[in-house]
Design a protein around this nucleic acid. Sequence first.
DNA 1: TATGAGCGG
Length: 88
Amino acid sequence: MKLFIGSLPYNITETELTDIFSGYGNVVSAKLIIDHFSGRPKGFGFVEMETRSEGHKAMEDLNGKEYKHRRLVCNEAKMQKKKGSRRR
DNA sequence: TATGAGCGG
């Protein structure tokens, strides 16, 4: 499950995100979005969990959780890398 | 280099 992480500090790394989310489950992949053109980090990133349960658990727990003196924002990523997302 | 609402490659 992909998760959208916002309000991330500019001094954070993918390793940090991986470590934080790995505490709730197995982190498949972690990506931080940095604008290389403006040299300005977007301040958010994406984290993919192996299961939806772990993703939701980490999302609800990390959403609104204080980290680096900042309020983290966690939501499900809207962008789907692969089609076939089952929805109802 | 700094800053702060936002879904990347």
